[in-house]
Simulated assay, not measured.
Amino acid sequence: MRLLHTSDWHLGRSFHGVGMLDAQRAFIEQLVAVVREEAVDVVLIAGDVYDRALPGVDVVRLLDDALVGLTGAGAQVVLTSGNHDSAIRLGFASRLLERGGVHLRTRLAELDQPVLFPLGGRADDGDAPLLAIYGIPWLEPRLVAEQLGVDTASHFEVTRAATARIRADLAVRAGTRTVHSVVLAHTFASGGISSDSERDLSIGGVGAVPLDLFDGFGYTALGHLHDRQELSPSVRYSGSPLAYSFSEAQHKKGGWLLDVGPDGIGGIREVLWQAPRTLAVLRGKLEDLLSADAFAWAEGAYCQITLTDAQRPAQAMEKLRSRFPDTLVLGFDPEGAGATAKTSYSSKLAEAADDLSVCCGFLEHVRGRAADDHEAAALAEALEAVRLEGMSL
């Protein structure tokens, strides 16, 4: 059998105000094409299918199209819920969907109920080795600790209890035949590298769980972190298929293809997704960014730009967008600012000679650049209008 591990689709998410539904549809088309070309038997989706608990109608329709496309390409799907999903909504009609090859594991009671596939021999061959795929949905410690029989509501304790249930089920099944296991889990496992677009899985404490909780499983398909990474040969994150923050600009987006035979997990290799847009993280002075040939590659990219000019340039965003039209984030970090002692605004206010000085001082304080002659004249005109209005009352 061949499996494909993916996760963190975040359908419905935007990127700094830019809708991503078309990009997500393009990813799904790539995914379905790979399933056909690689003859994938099972697609594993390790949580955060949706970006919100209440996805829009067009977002739900996109997931529907994805599941129809994957099953139409010959694959079955095993899907768990993540911390962004509503487990109840995502798990709707799970028993009916299972008849069509879509296996949802969104309920706590189902985490030790695997999806079973024969490995070699006929489906009704009672002696053929089995592949057992388990799905651990996102476990909110405060909500599931009591149901899992643990006294401490922590990510470690609830995950340990969940994996113990899976091991108990495996032990029973292994008593009669060979069983190889794959476990899906949406969690922050120690050793992973996080990025800005994942939510913190802990509240008031460390939420990471140790890797040894997954010892003994043939493969653990993790979701939550957006960088595709190998924590151990048998424990991996697929990462998100698209970049959802500029901190992911250097990620190589993709997933993992696994071959499983009667002897267990065989080869594991990467599959890469083509990014719809390049991400550029640029830094420098405005004049250099607008003129240097070294930045030409970023003209068609989504850009995050930090200006280092000593004073904040006027109309900086408008000027940058003349060369980089898709500048989405603009920041300022003046060179040498940290070494210069800054006079407090209250001190400047005390030194102001008149109302115009107060207004011009405030403008300089908030943007780091003094008012020019045109701006000072506009402020003076506004102040005079206020003075005349007050005299007429």
Rank of each mutant, 00 (worst) to 15 (best):
L3V: 12
D8H: 02
H10Q: 05
L11A: 12
M20N: 13
A26M: 07
Q30I: 04
D41K: 10
I45C: 00
G47L: 01
D48I: 08
V49P: 10
Y50K: 07
Y50I: 11
R52V: 12
R52M: 13
D64M: 04
A75D: 05
T80D: 00
T80K: 01
S81Q: 09
S81P: 05
S81N: 07
N83I: 03
R89T: 03
G91A: 03
R95K: 13
L96N: 07
T106W: 04
E110G: 12
P114W: 00
L116G: 09
P118A: 14
P118N: 07
G120C: 06
G120R: 15
D124C: 11
D124T: 13
Y134P: 06
G135P: 05
I136T: 06
V144F: 03
V144P: 03
L148S: 11
L148V: 10
S154K: 04
E157C: 10
E157L: 14
R160V: 11
R160E: 14
T176W: 08
R177Q: 13
A185S: 15
A189N: 10
G192V: 14
I193W: 10
D196L: 13
E198K: 05
L201K: 02
G207T: 06
F214W: 01
Y219I: 00
E230D: 14
Y237I: 05
H251Y: 15
G266S: 08
P276K: 04
R283K: 07
L286F: 02
D288Q: 15
L290E: 03
S291V: 12
S291W: 03
I305S: 13
T308M: 08
R312T: 10
R312K: 06
R312D: 08
P313A: 09
A316I: 07
A316W: 00
E318R: 08
K319H: 07
R323I: 02
P334A: 09
G338H: 11
G338C: 11
A339D: 13
T340N: 08
T343S: 13
S344K: 10
S347F: 13
K348F: 10
A352Y: 05
D354G: 05
L356Q: 05
V358W: 00
C360M: 11
C360H: 13
F362Q: 01
L363I: 11
G368T: 01
R369G: 06
A371K: 04
A377H: 15
L379Q: 01
A380Q: 07
A380R: 06
E381D: 10
L383K: 00
L383M: 02
G390W: 05
M391K: 14
S392W: 15
L393D: 06
